[in-house]
Design a protein around this nucleic acid. Structure first.
Length: 500
RNA sequence: GGCCCUGUCAUCUAACGGUUAGGAUACUGCCCUCUCAAGGCAGGUAUACGGGUUCGAUUCCCGUCAGGGCUACCA
């Protein structure tokens, strides 16, 4: 049996967006699941629109995902094959030269003009005349001669959408070669898929109707069409297809990376859009996804990526690259993606999480060491949703001096400033002789509370605020233990000054 | 306009003729608790509509409506 071969074939005309990423991931999972070969092919036949920046963005995004591929190709380096394939189709009589000048401008977009199918004069032109005009150097596009006789249909079986059939009469005579001799997407794609012996084409549903043309090409070129599997599209909350131009940075893979998503969480999230393991499982590791993935689990309805529209770009037509100047905020992202990210963060070992947090911390606090962070990580692991949250959740550990805070925060529940002062002063006298470990601290402070006649909570809060600069923070004793006696006492001292 | 695809809670989805239509996120409440989280428990919200077929339709068929895709010498 031939080995299973799949490919991801992005065209480098913009940054890698989440829809493409999902297509890559599904291909990858299918390949790995079935011991197949994953191929990356840059579909760069549109020289006008290709950019190096885009190529870089694609590699950057894929690198972050951490999923590897086995073979890599560039369509622009395979032009000979494409032309040879076109020539073969032409010689077979399945294509004809169209000398009609290229459509000028984009004034007539798709739609209102009715159905264009072919250029009659050109389709019927004799081979002699066609050859003669070509010989004079007159430019022409090469079009596929779609069999449009009554009753002629093109069909294929899609692994997701089932049996597909379309009348030849409804398919236009699409171009194979442009008048500059360059192959079109359809031709290049099929010629390469055939040459690379792709066994399964897994791609977005926007290609479902194009597939009829592709089947025509495969057959005309003498190849058995591969198995097709079309994925439901990822759409924005407004229902439209995700678009770099309309929706901006929220659809860029690197935006997720920069916001502090774990790649495995991002992959997990994307997998749940349009696919399901059918057993209510949601949080899954890469290994589990690989194990569970199947084409049968893919569904047919489009899935919305529930991001906030406000996060999208407001200016149309401004092809805006994701910009660090406008970092995405928490409420930009799909809540489920955030939840999954938090889940994956919590599932990491302290060591693993620390190593991922460290570079982020060191960007702001270069002196923080791995071993220091290792003690902090357990305290914030259940409290962060993004890796970047470490900066706000644990800032008081990194800072030498606390940023200013409202002294009113020091006042405990059902207490007053006097109580806060009393508590802090008591702590100041008790703490120096306490060993800074969880249990001794616990015991000492609870005893102190009793002696003062205040509730434990009323005892802890002023200290917490004095030490963390805010009310909401990790558990107190662990915090003090990590922070150490010296810093703790200094901060209590400062708090007392604030109150006096 | 033509052709193709799709339609279960706000969102992601499960149920491939028989379920009180299940799970998750989000939301609300309660419990736990030194705050915040995490965790546990509880709660509300869905089969687009109309016809069939069937003893019985979320499930099969037809229509309507809605959404999406394609309709380029873009990919």
């Amino acid at each position: 049996m031939d080995k299973l071969r799949v490919r991801f074939a992005p065209s480098p005309t913009g940054f890698l967006h989440v829809g493409s990423a999902r297509t890559f991931i599904f291909n990858w999972l299918y390949a790995r699941r079935n011991n197949g070969t994953m191929i990356l092919r840059l579909d760069d036949t549109d020289v006008e629109r290709n950019t190096d920046a885009s190529v870089n963005s694609i590699f950057e995004g894929l690198k972050w995902l951490g999923l590897s591929w086995d073979e890599e190709y560039k369509q622009s380096e395979r032009l000979e094959l494409h032309k040879k394939t076109a020539e073969a189709i032409f010689q077979k009589g399945s294509a004809y030269r169209d000398f009609t000048p290229a459509h000028t401008g984009d004034s007539e977009k798709s739609g209102a003009q009715g159905t264009w199918l072919f250029n009659p004069g050109m389709r019927e032109m004799s081979r002699e005349e066609s050859d003669r005009r070509a010989a004079t150097g007159e430019p022409f596009a090469l079009r596929f001669r779609v069999p449009r006789e009554e009753g002629n249909t093109v069909r294929f079986n899609d692994a997701v959408y089932g049996e597909q059939m379309k009348a030849g009469a409804d398919i236009e005579d699409f171009a194979l070669l442009r008048s500059d001799g360059m192959p079109t997407y359809h031709l290049a794609s099929c010629a390469d898929d055939a040459d690379l012996r792709i066994s399964h084409i897994i791609r977005g549903q926007d290609h479902l109707t194009n597939t009829f043309k592709h089947v025509l090409i495969f057959e005309a070129a003498g190849y058995e069409p591969p198995q097709f599997a079309h994925l439901p599209l990822l759409v924005a909350p407004d229902g439209t297809k995700l678009s770099k131009r309309r929706h901006g940075p929220v659809v860029s893979v690197t935006t997720y990376r920069d916001a502090g998503f774990l790649p495995e969480a991002f992959i997990n999230f994307l997998c749940l859009l349009g696919w399901s393991p059918k057993n209510d499982r949601e949080q899954m590791t890469l290994a589990e996804l690989t194990e569970l993935f199947s084409l049968e689990g893919i569904n047919r309805a489009n899935a919305v990526v529930n991001f906030k529209e406000e996060g999208a770009t407001k200016e149309p037509n401004v092809a805006r690259a994701p910009s660090p100047a406008h970092p995405a905020t928490k409420d930009t992202f799909d809540p489920k993606a955030i939840w999954l990210n938090a889940q994956h963060i919590r599932s990491l070992t302290v060591e693993d999480l620390t190593s991922r947090l460290l570079p982020i911390v060191q960007q702001s606090y270069p002196s923080v060491t791995s071993s220091e962070l290792l003690r902090i990580t357990p305290l914030i692991r259940e409290r962060i949703e993004f890796l970047r949250d470490v900066l706000t959740a644990a800032d008081f550990f990194f800072l030498d001096r606390l940023p200013p805070y409202d002294p009113a925060e020091l006042v405990p529940q059902k207490g007053d400033a006097a109580m806060a002062l009393k508590v802090l002063q008591r702590a100041q006298t008790v703490l120096p002789s306490v060993e800074f470990k969880h249990d001794p601290l616990d015991q000492a402070l609870r005893t102190a509370a009793q002696e003062l006649g205040v509730k434990a909570g009323q005892m802890f809060q002023p200290i917490r605020v004095a030490v963390c600069g805010r009310k909401n923070a990790p558990p107190l004793f662990e915090t003090l233990e990590v922070l150490g006696k010296e810093k703790t006492l200094t901060r209590i001292e400062s708090a007392i000054k604030l109150l006096s």
